[in-house]
Design a protein around this nucleic acid. Structure first.
Lengths: 230, 230
DNA sequence: TTAAAGAATATTGTATACAAAAAAATATTG
DNA sequence: CAATATTTTTTTGTATACAATATTCTTTAA
């Protein structure tokens, strides 16, 4: 979640790759992440895999059980509302902070992101579109100028995206339907209250579109990460 | 921050002890935490110390710099406001959720905590009083019935306590002055808005009482953790 | 005496070996 | 054949050795 130096450490490479792959819904919730497999795949020792997994577990996208191991986090239906509420609170506070204070550069950046996101979705590249949609929310968190609040927001954005991955496999991926440009509009012009309300509605809409049926979960780590088996 | 099984793992022991000691202001912000020293002190390998430190760094109470090591987190004065704002948002949302919904058991528990806290402060045991004061806020987070929100709240409670440790060495320790029983009262009776307001005022008061002067920081790990040197 | 350069020391980063625990596979018994 | 025991295999937990890096100390020159 945090950016750092020029040359990425091995741990960072593993962390970021896994984070991306999970967030882009290529690794479904529930998939087991064994240390040795990942160590082989990334050609590093278990030590660095372990660290990366630990970090992911603090971000909430991976769940580590002692003596058992790590899986991509799954969420029970009954727990879903509290994650969305937490996200509404965090992201509502974030948008309040930027509402009416957007620089032209920031506005242009966001509009470009929205365009790119829509392009991906229209061309059928759902994974990339989803990623861009998340990046839009991440960017909002970054420009709100409050580090801990941004961290909270990003954590809940990632967490709820994972929930969407679990309970909205089929249809409209995440935010696709509700256009993000309306959010940009209100950030430029609107007062804080209206911006917060619109964000709340946006998130409520995503939550309302979840489907709590049965899902099929299974995958091959090597294939997903696009690496040949030894 | 998270509670777990019956028999604590080694990592958990190290983590909890360090967390307590830092939160009770026995380890001042800026103090270096070298892995070998801690490994000796706790009679475990560097591996488990490393994991504990990593976890503490995610909680924000320890700061790890690559190739340099871990110190108790320090906060620059200019960054202080954003941590308090984040805490107000998180804890404001938490108290909203419990306002008017306290069970008698919860009320009694909190009143007992307040009594204990005051007893410690009156008898001059500042460290323990401070700890109980934090536990009061932690308890509120626990009963609000929203796991991610509770985590955010606890994280910010710990983080701001650390700030208080750095910039309020001398006088009234944290919340001592403003009585927590008023908060209990409003949680029992008051509407959510009033409860949130009171919490905001409470936290604002703590922030306003910080003193950004010079501090003397230094200590001996072995002495603080009450273990004989080898 | 001070500043800079270099050597010595200490500390973190990574890999790996072995122990402990869990999971899977196989054998055994009703 | 089913259910349970037992063995085998796999996987995680911990300690430790060695490499890379940073820090400290000493030496040397202006």
């Amino acid at each position: 979640m945090e950016k750092s130096k020029g040359s990425k450490s091995q741990e960072e490479v593993v962390y970021e790759r896994l984070f991306d792959v999970i967030i882009e819904q290529k690794l479904q919730p529930g998939v087991r992440l064994t240390e040795i497999s990942l160590a082989e795949i990334f050609a590093v020792s278990r030590t660095v895999v372990r660290r990366a997994l630990l970090r992911l577990s603090y971000e909430g996208v991976v769940d580590i059980k002692p003596n058992i191991g790590a899986i991509v986090t799954t969420t029970e239906p009954k727990d879903v509302p509290q994650y969305f509420e937490a996200r509404r609170i965090a992201e509502g506070a974030l948008i309040r902070r930027v509402a009416g204070k957007l620089t032209t550069y920031q506005e242009e950046t966001m509009r470009a992101m929205v365009r790119e996101e829509n392009r991906y979705f229209l061309s059928g590249n759902r994974a990339r579109g989803l990623r861009k949609s998340i990046d839009f929310h991440f960017y909002l968190a970054d420009i709100a100028n409050n580090k801990p609040l941004a961290e909270m927001g990003k954590k809940m954005i990632a967490r709820t995206s994972l929930i969407v991955a679990q309970y909205n496999l089929s249809g409209s991926g995440g935010c696709a339907c509700v256009d993000h440009s309306a959010l940009v509009d209100v950030m430029v012009s609107g007062p804080a209250d209206r911006a917060e309300n619109m964000m709340h509605e946006h998130l409520q809409h995503i939550e309302d579109n979840l489907y709590f049926g049965k899902q099929s979960l299974e995958t091959d780590l090597y294939r997903i990460l696009e690496i040949d088996k030894p």
